[in-house]
């Protein structure tokens, strides 16, 4: 995966996070620490995050794959491998 395709994906993930945690400083986010831990997201916040990603990219993340969205790094990696209906 080249950075040219991954950078827009990362922007989508950060945008989705901003919508569920508007008070968070996303610039300070550690790419490899679980998001729920870093941002104190509850299950409803996480569902809203998944929905925001779905709306932005048209990807359908099954519930069993939620674990693959644990960190910013893993999100980008996982989403890059999914078929989607909208450009990032």
């Amino acid at each position: 995966m080249s950075t040219t395709t991954q950078a827009p994906l990362e922007q989508v993930v950060l945008g989705a996070l901003a919508s569920v945690a508007p008070e968070a400083d996303l610039a300070a986010l550690d790419r490899n620490v679980p998001l729920r831990e870093q941002l104190d997201l509850d299950s409803m916040d996480f569902l809203n995050f998944v929905i925001a990603v779905h709306r932005a990219l048209g990807v359908d993340v099954p519930e069993r794959d939620y674990a693959k969205l644990a960190t910013l790094e893993s999100c980008v990696e996982y989403l890059a491998g999914l078929p989607r209906t909208k450009p990032a």
Binding site: S43, L47, I51, H54, D60, V61
Partner: peptide
Amino acid sequence: NARRPVEERLL
């Protein structure tokens, strides 16, 4: 939830 789209999933 397996048969529900993301936006309609239940917690």
